[in-house]
Nucleic acid binder design. Structure first.
Length: 553
RNA sequence: GCGCCCGUAGCUCAGGGGAUAGAGUGAUGGCCUCCGAAGCCAUAGGUCGCGCGUUCGAUUCGCGCCGGGCGCGCCA
């Protein structure tokens, strides 16, 4: 059912209320979707909400309101339930209309221009080039990519950015780890760094380095550079396999090269919120809601990661992104207050006007990965983790994406590798894709059974669609734009996943209960048109999630 | 100890002031001479962690407990 129907009903109720209770402002009317079909298509709790202010019995008030409703060709009937709810039932024609809308809008059905092309930067993955991507990065990538697509669907101009932390101690650590492996390989006495990276991939890089014609690993800078290039290439391949694409890559090292770090420090000094203590330079982040002040420049003269972080986000703002969204593991949630505090301080002079809530964060919980009935601790340094690539190879890209998006971000969840592999056939993604493939198959069958050219289903008369399952499907189709709008407002792609599962489920039920290709041509065409509308919405939704829409399975 | 997040069916999870709390999976029993059985239908399974408040109404909001995760570096 389309949004027009809903606003039409609100209009009716508002006018009715104006007659019954002229002293009440009419803006209070809200409509809900009853869980029970017997309660109609919409219900309105206005009488209960207003009863107290009007000192009236809610049920009587509801009865009067219903009696005062203006006539309408969409509204079938309005009745008062025992407790004062007004239940509204709509005529089939009001629901059938949605099929025409879907045919007309096609791939654009559900999209809107409400953001008006405003820019937003979505930063995600941002894995350090110190190891392959693991399943946690997979959750990040799936979320970031889907959130980007969702924002685009509502008219945002989205830039997807990957931030490379290529200037810190961890990179040095990587270089030392590889160097140690090279030395071991060559039989040179070597001391492995205490907090070095122990994964097998470090050894592989060491071997490649030697195969590339290097006699030894004594040039640490060259070793490090080689390792970073290798790992970045691997990560790019992983992301490619996952179907994730970025518009830009931002290097931390460029913040130093462009003197943005120095400028950020200067801005923080100018704010008057900086102070020296114990040989270090601090910022009074506690004045911006942090629980303790933070060091900016260590006593050894180097900066903490906090400073380039602030510089990076200042750069985002200066690049024109008045909205910024970061996808991060909740284990980094302490940086939220800190980065915002730094931005507020740095922009306090000079009137940049960065909002307090800038940037926004979508924090997701780490996965508990189970394999062989045991929890796999994800640890880069210990080298024990499941790579994203391994998962994609064994479970499939669509299934991994759909599964990783099927929980809200801030919920912990258990990813059982064995289950995902062994039951990949039963993964919910196939349930949705199957509905899509089934519809194509019905269209093929039409040709086989009835022949002739494809009928113009866009022009089909929909009046025959009056069955309970058909009306329910029509209603569900009409909810899609609201679902998108909501998912974007809450940055919650899982809502789209649940919607698609429900839509597919209703379709499967319908398909089993009713024959689509009946002999009466008008009914057949109406049903085929409904199927096509379902297919269109499945396509639109799946493509937003980055999941393919196969014609055959 | 302090801060953030989470406790909903055996398991994995939706819902988030509104009527009888849902789905998937697992269990049990049915449905292919008929458009794709990767599907459908039915049955079973719950003190929505506990308590006290706010409200016409609380699983949902507030406070306090209990249990779990994460964070609390001059690491990132």
């Amino acid at each position: 059912m389309s949004a027009e129907v809903k606003s039409h009903l609100i209009e009716l109720l508002t006018r009715g209320l104006a007659k019954v209770a002229p002293q009440q402002p009419g803006s209070l009317i809200s409509l809900e979707r009853p869980k029970q079909a017997q309660h109609g298509d919409f219900s309105c709790p206005a009488a209960m909400q207003l009863a107290r202010a009007l000192k009236r019995n809610p049920r009587e008030l509801a009865l009067e309101l219903v009696a005062a409703l203006p006539p309408s060709e969409w509204l079938e009937r309005a009745e008062v339930a025992g407790n004062g709810f007004i239940n509204l039932r709509v005529r089939p024609a009001a629901k059938q209309h949605i099929v025409k809308t879907i045919f007309a809008d096609g791939d654009r059905y559900g999209r809107s221009e409400s953001a008006g092309g405003r820019p937003v930067i979505v930063e995600f993955v941002s894995a350090n080039p110190t190891g392959p991507l693991h399943v946690g990065h997979g959750r990040n990538a799936a979320l970031g990519d889907a959130i980007g697509a969702l924002l685009e669907s509502q008219g945002w101009r989205v830039t997807r950015e990957f931030y490379y932390n290529d200037a810190g101690a961890q990179i040095r650590n990587l270089g030392l780890s590889v160097q140690a492996r090279i030395r071991e390989k060559l039989g040179v006495p070597a001391e492995f760094p205490a907090d070095g990276y122990r994964g097998d991939y470090v050894l592989e890089i060491a071997e490649k380095y030697l195969e590339a014609g290097n006699a030894d690993g004594e040039d640490l800078e060259a070793v490090t550079r080689f390792a970073v290039v290798e790992l970045r290439r691997e990560q790019d391949l992983d992301l490619q396999a996952f179907g994730v694409r970025f518009d830009s890559y931002f290097l931390e090292s460029s913040l130093y090269a462009d003197e943005r770090v120095e400028k950020a420090v200067q801005a923080l000094l100018d704010s008057g919120k900086a102070f020296e203590q114990d040989g270090a330079l601090w910022l009074k982040t506690t004045e911006y809601g942090d629980d303790k002040d933070r060091v900016m420049r260590k006593s050894d003269g180097t900066y903490t990661y906090f400073v380039p972080d602030v510089a990076y986000h200042l750069a985002k703002w200066e690049r024109g992104f008045t909205r910024a969204i970061n996808i991060q593991g909740s284990d980094h949630h302490s940086t939220v207050t800190r980065v915002r505090a730094g931005l507020q301080a740095a922009s306090s002079k000079g009137g940049r006007g960065i909002p307090q809530g800038y940037p926004e964060y979508v924090l997701y919980k780490m996965l508990t990965v189970m394999k062989g009935g045991e929890e796999m601790k994800i640890s880069k340094r210990a080298g024990s983790y499941v790579t994203l690539r391994e998962l994609i190879d064994e479970v499939g890209r669509d299934a991994v994406r759909f599964f990783l998006l099927s929980r809200k971000a801030d919920a912990e969840f258990v990813f059982d590798i064995d289950l995902a592999k062994s039951q990949s056939e039963e993964n919910p993604v196939y349930y949705v894709q199957y509905a899509h493939a089934r519809i194509r198959s019905v269209l093929e069958q039409r040709k086989a059974l009835f022949g002739g050219p494809d009928p113009d289903l866009a022009a089909a008369d929909l009046v025959p669609l009056t069955g309970g399952r058909e009306l329910a499907l029509l209603q569900r189709l009409g909810e899609y734009p609201e679902v998108l709008e909501n998912a974007v407002a809450e940055l919650a792609p899982h809502q789209v996943v649940f919607y698609l599962r429900e839509l597919a489920g209703q379709f499967h039920s319908y398909y089993n209960a009713e024959r689509i290709l009946v002999s009466e041509a008008p009914l057949r065409s109406a049903r085929l048109a409904l199927c096509l509308a379902v297919r269109q919405v499945l396509r639109n939704g799946l493509s937003l999630l980055g999941v393919s829409q196969p014609e055959k399975m």
